[in-house]
Design a protein around this nucleic acid. Structure first.
Length: 423
RNA sequence: GGAGAGGUGGCCGAGUGGCCGAAGGCGCACGCUUGGAAAGCGUGUGUGGCGCAAGUCACCGAGGGUUCGAAUCCCUCCCUCUCCGCCA
């Protein structure tokens, strides 16, 4: 959500943000309703003030005077009710439109229509030159009997899978390593709910708009999260934090669920696009300071790239263009990791900064100093590792001619072997 | 799941129809006092909307309702606690 005062004063900036982000939203409709709402609100308030004064007098009136006064009050009350109905209808419309207003992108964000216009910032690591015909992660997984997609589909439908034996082990080891990597960097590990209230989904910006992407437990009015960003960022919603508590840096490992509606036919093979996966996610809640946020964004990006370096995976960092940015994001960097079977880099991480967009929706604030007014926090998040997507990269990049897969050195002790596919 | 008890300001706690945005206490801030501190004394101390402002409206878990008037009465829901049941 944007600062609505700011929106009133800078409607052109909001229109521009919508245009650059390729989001269609009627700013003028919002402004019209906003003005009407404030008008009606003034009327309703002054009527209420009158009624309030009058009803205080009534208690002290003689019985005869009272009768006349009561009649008047009832009449006025009827008019007020009509106005109140008008007000609440306007308020609902107002709120619905306000939730759609886009956060203006940073000036560093390249203009563009979709992900094809994203700008590569740097490439790191060597793309492997195998000198033999490399196998896909599916071939490798099946070859070692550690991946079973058909039975995953039998159990739960398309885009489901089973990891077995060493591959299940490798997944746990990578996730654990990622958690430790972040804990060493001062992040507090958290175990979060993944079935959350709609308020959390709305607060973090996924609703309205993302309902089709989420699995819902409608009977209980809960949604299954697509990322632990949702619960992590919502932890202090509705609270006023002490300035000394900031920044709050947290990391969670959780299952993630995505319906992948509208992706029929896209990435249908293998482990790239699945309905359920694990993710280690970093979330930071900080002070309302754009320079600080921008720096922290880079630090969070580095936490993830450092991990990719440790896993000896080739990747590139991409500055996501305006058309590929979400409604609330100010700027986003994706890390795309080399996947030989795709012959390309595939998205494995996404680092976003929101300034106060999520905080306003969540009513997440802090008090800059004693006695000062509460201010909305800034929030950021980034992937640390997501599996099974990272397994594609690990299997395919580190494969040997005989089909064995070398486990990165940093994982070998936990994994208990140097190679996957070797008994 | 069953039975019961509750949800009031940063915290504790009073308040069963108007004098209540809310007593009192604690805490906190500022001032006085002091060589300094403690104690003591005094003053102040919620959030949000609208408004240039004066101000005004809303908020006593949430949402409805009754009433001229609701923290107080009624309904629905949420949450917490106790006991029982069930269970990983």
């Amino acid at each position: 959500m944007l600062d609505l005062k700011w929106v009133r004063e800078n409607p052109a900036a909001v229109r521009d943000a919508a245009e650059r982000k390729r989001i269609s939203v009627d700013v003028d409709a919002f402004l019209g309703i906003d003005e009407k709402l404030r008008e009606v609100q003034q009327v309703v308030e002054s009527m209420r003030a009158e009624l309030k004064v009058a009803s205080k007098k009534i208690g002290k009136l003689s019985p005869e005077e009272r009768e006349a006064a009561l009649g008047e009050q009832k009449q006025m009350k009827a008019v007020l009710k009509e106005r109140e109905a008008e007000e609440s209808a306007l308020r609902a419309e107002h709120q619905a439109l306000a939730l759609l207003l886009p956060m203006p992108p940073s000036s560093e964000v390249p203009d563009g229509k979709d992900d094809t216009d994203n700008v590569e910032l740097r490439r790191v690591g060597e793309v492997p030159d195998f000198g033999f015909e490399p196998r896909s992660h599916i071939e490798l997984g099946e070859m070692h009997g550690v991946l079973d997609i058909p039975r995953g589909v039998k159990i739960a439908g398309s885009r489901n899978y089973l990891l077995l034996g060493q591959l299940a082990r490798l997944e746990q080891v990578v996730l654990q390593y990622a958690m430790d990597h972040m804990i060493e960097r001062g992040f507090e590990p958290v175990s979060v709910p993944t079935l959350v209230s709609y308020a959390c989904m709305e607060g973090t910006g996924y609703f309205p708009g993302g309902e089709e992407q989420a699995y819902m437990a409608e009977r209980d009015q809960l949604a299954l999260v697509g990322t632990s960003e949702v619960p992590l960022t919502s932890i202090h919603s509705g609270e006023v934090l002490d300035a000394e508590a900031l920044p709050i840096r947290r990391v969670a490992m959780s299952p993630c669920y995505r319906r992948e509606a509208g992706t029929y036919g896209k990435d249908t093979k293998g482990l790239y696009r699945v309905h359920q996966f694990w993710k280690v996610e970093q979330v930071v809640i900080g002070p309302a300071d754009e320079a600080w946020s921008t720096e922290e964004h880079q630090r969070m990006l580095a936490h993830a790239t450092d991990l990719m370096d440790a896993l000896e995976l080739p990747y590139r960092v991409v500055n996501v263009c305006t058309g590929d940015l979400g409604q609330g994001q100010v700027q986003k960097f994706d890390i795309e990791t080399w996947m030989p079977s795709r012959g390309n880099y595939g998205e494995t991480h996404s680092a976003s900064r929101f300034y106060d967009f999520q905080s306003r929706r969540l009513q997440l604030r802090y008090r800059p100093e004693n006695g000062a007014k509460p201010v909305h926090c800034h929030t950021l998040n980034n992937t640390v590792i997501a599996s099974p997507r990272v397994l594609i990269a690990l299997l395919e990049n580190h494969q040997q001619e005989d089909g064995r897969v070398r486990v990165p050195e940093v994982l070998q002790a936990r994994f208990g072997a140097e190679y996957l596919g070797e008994s």
